[in-house]
Design a protein around this nucleic acid. Structure first.
Lengths: 235, 235
DNA sequence: ATCCCGAATTGGTCTGACCAAGAACTTGGA
DNA sequence: TCCAAGTTCTTGGTCAGACCAATTCGGGAT
């Protein structure tokens, strides 16, 4: 089965298969590699789990295209397993995204700036809808990651953001003060647009600290009215 | 198949299965969930690919124990796919590990400090053996990640370090100046031991910058003598 | 009590088959 | 001639049953 993964990897490394391309059918791969189809499927499955490949029934199996991104599930599974704390999540985000914001300020291309602006606008437009707001919130952070110009960092941000989103989606109730959150994002955007790395870093740091504190008080309030916090405490 | 993943996830989230535990046999799971064994295997395979589970033939399938860690392959696969640059790798490491070093300085426990010291010692002891040196180099950085006390950051460092190791292992020839590299690590260790977060960050930053520059010149030399650089250039 | 061997359990692989979703080709009508 | 609808083929997803190799564990011999 490892042979299957190695075979696919060779195809990719040799450039015979590039991003977006379709790879041979499972039956064909089985014939070429000299193993059975279940074994081929096992190998492909691990690659699909990593989101290196994605399979479409009836169409074929394709190499992931677009910006590089990992599977988002691994982190959220680890979160379920080890019970990542809310504070740990924010700390990780700060460690990562503050630097990323600085890089984004240096390198963001015009269309990426426009994308950031769009997300900020959408946030202001969905102040009354916490779920929609959350989606644009996450997308803004992913966009900052992409604007950093570093695909590795973009992938890491993507990963952490996805985990965060999954955790948050359950508890994002009628949050208050979405206005100030939106304003914080605009501040980050403006700093990036102004090519001011230091200010972008500071704004990102402040935003994440504020969000952390806000969620802490929100959780406290939920506890007061009897609702148990959802899976963010240490096991 | 997604149902299988969801089922396992519920087991974990409910605490019925904890880290290190063995989960029911595939045939038993198939019976409980109401699908066939191949389907169960497909689900487990995705979890194994994420290194959430690991299977031992004849023994059973177990939930990963020890410190949380992701699959290391995804990143290296992405590296093969998108051709991450050496500079991008170092930039990502700087963004991540500088902050991590600062946290480690604040929180490293005594046994973690001892572990760091051991790795530094091993590095000095293997100045004549680049491959062994590299192993301890990576282990030092992973140890710093663990010492940060944040499992998420530790996992991210683990991931990036693994990718870096895989890339480096192929080209780590008769590197020069391993002495100064070892010294740089000792400097980081000493700063962490002294609980000086700012100094730890600075030392880590300097080390990564120096290593980046050294590898750049090393690659240049390899090109001069006719050896092509190995898979670190943009595709 | 200790050691060794065999039976039972378990993950890994194989064969062969069927189903549903796309894709591609054919065919009919305009 | 051109387009649209329907059929056929390909492809991934699932299922069934079987065998193998590694591991575990219990029973029997020493």
């Amino acid at each position: 089965m490892d042979g299957v993964v190695a075979y696919i990897r060779r195809l990719i490394e040799r450039g015979e298969i590039r991003a977006g391309h379709r790879l041979p059918a499972e039956r064909e791969l089985a014939r070429r590699i000299g193993v059975s189809r279940p074994t081929v499927r096992a190998g492909l499955q691990t690659l699909v789990a990593m989101q290196i490949l994605h399979a479409r029934p009836g169409a074929g199996t394709f190499v992931a295209d677009g910006p590089p991104r990992f599977g988002t599930e691994p982190l959220s599974f680890l979160a379920a397993l080890h019970g990542f704390t809310r504070d740990e999540m924010f700390e990780a985000r700060r460690a990562l995204e503050v630097s990323v914001a600085g890089l984004a300020a240096e390198r963001a291309r015009p269309e990426q700036l426009a994308g950031l602006a769009d997300e900020v606008t959408s946030m202001f437009a969905s102040l009354q809808d916490p779920q929609t707001f959350l989606i644009h919130d996450i997308r803004f952070h992913r966009a900052v990651g992409a604007a950093s110009g570093n695909p590795i960092l973009a992938s890491l941000v993507e990963m952490v953001a996805a985990m965060f989103y999954e955790q948050r989606r359950k508890t994002a109730g009628r949050a208050h003060d979405l206005t100030s959150t939106a304003a914080a994002h605009r501040k980050i955007y403006q700093a990036i647009r102004a090519r001011d790395g230091a200010r972008a870093q500071a704004a990102m740091n402040e935003h994440l600290l504020a969000a952390q504190q806000e969620q802490a008080s929100e959780e406290l309030r939920l506890v007061k009215i009897g609702a148990p916090p959802l899976g963010t405490q240490k096991g």
